[in-house]
């Protein structure tokens, strides 16, 4: 409720200010697209395995860098991004195989992902260096387009990030609600033991979800590496942003992640435009306010916190 009200307020303020409102809106939506790509995988893993995957930012960075190297080799953005996503899916699966070795309440697993995050960040630095670099957008999406009414020129690629996120969201929805695998995943979120008793290999389901989340993070890395840049520390920044989105939306809820991605993306874009110095403080302030009012996020329920 608070988030929606806040989002409403921001849209309203943006409209008042007029000429910059569309820019803020589009920047916010682009950021929201990227955050959703990250947050959806993150929240899926959390809902299923009760692991806060703090290596998710590392997967983003490595996915982006892998795509960068592949693009330099093949010259094709889509092949590079696709293979980068495959690579991070593999890495994420390996991570799951390590996490399997501890059976805890989520905390030792989270610690392990923390260790993995540090190793990943250091390896990214070792292999790709500390100089910020970025991917070239694919030829078809280069340059800007005139928005209707020619009020604003906006980069095509940024718009396509929004489209990509929406497509990913649609695919996720189809997967989760229209396939057998999806119903197994949803059932595992609700009652892992019962699904296991029914003869389904839950481990395999978990493994798939980890791979899927890794692929989404890798894809986000390629997209983010194109319209932002890849650099040291970028993994932490994006991890924090997606953490904020996931927490604000309610852990484990993909719908919540989508709504929160838009809210946080808009708040951030608004703050960056109008209060640049305090932008991050405003974003984090929003999160803290949401959590103080609703400790389990906008869409989270008390039941989500199964100990």
């Amino acid at each position: 409720m608070a988030g929606v009200a806040l989002g409403g307020y921001i849209v309203e303020r943006s409209l008042e200010i007029g000429d910059r409102s569309l820019l803020v809106l589009l920047n916010g939506l682009t950021a929201a697209g990227l955050y959703f790509l990250m947050a959806s995988g993150f929240t899926l893993v959390f809902g299923l395995v009760r692991v806060t995957n703090l290596a998710h930012g590392g997967l983003y960075l490595l996915g982006g860098y892998t795509a960068l190297s592949l693009q330099r080799m093949t010259g094709n953005w889509f092949i590079a991004a696709g293979l980068g996503a495959v690579a991070t899916a593999g890495l994420s699966t390996v991570l799951y195989l390590v996490l399997r070795r501890v059976h805890g309440d989520g905390l030792p697993e989270t610690m392990l992902t923390l260790g993995a995050a540090i190793v990943m960040a250091d390896q990214a630095l070792a292999n790709w260096g500390g100089v910020p670099s970025d991917l070239d957008p694919p030829a078809a999406l280069r340059g800007s387009i005139d928005l209707p009414g020619s009020i604003l020129l906006y980069p095509k690629f940024r718009l396509s990030v929004v489209a990509m996120a929406m497509l990913a969201g649609l695919c996720l929805w189809l997967l989760l609600y229209r396939t057998r695998l999806g119903s197994t995943i949803r059932a595992s979120v609700d009652d892992r033991d019962m699904v296991s008793i029914l003869g389904i290999r839950v481990e395999l389901v978990f493994c798939t979800v980890f791979a899927l989340a890794g692929a989404l993070a890798g894809l986000a890395g390629a997209a983010g590496g194109t319209y932002l840049s890849l650099a040291q520390g970028e993994d932490n920044r994006i991890l924090l942003a997606s953490l904020i989105v996931v927490i604000a939306g309610g852990l484990g809820s993909i719908g919540g992640a989508a709504v929160a991605a838009v809210v946080i993306g808009l708040v951030e874009a608004f703050a960056q435009t109008h209060h640049a110095i305090f932008s991050v403080l405003i974003t984090f302030g929003t999160l803290i306010a949401i959590l103080v009012l609703r400790p389990h996020g906008i869409f989270g329920s008390q039941q989500d916190e199964r100990a």
Partner: peptide, 8 residues
Amino acid sequence: AGLYLMML
């Protein structure tokens, strides 16, 4: 508590 505390 738990993971929520960690994130908050």
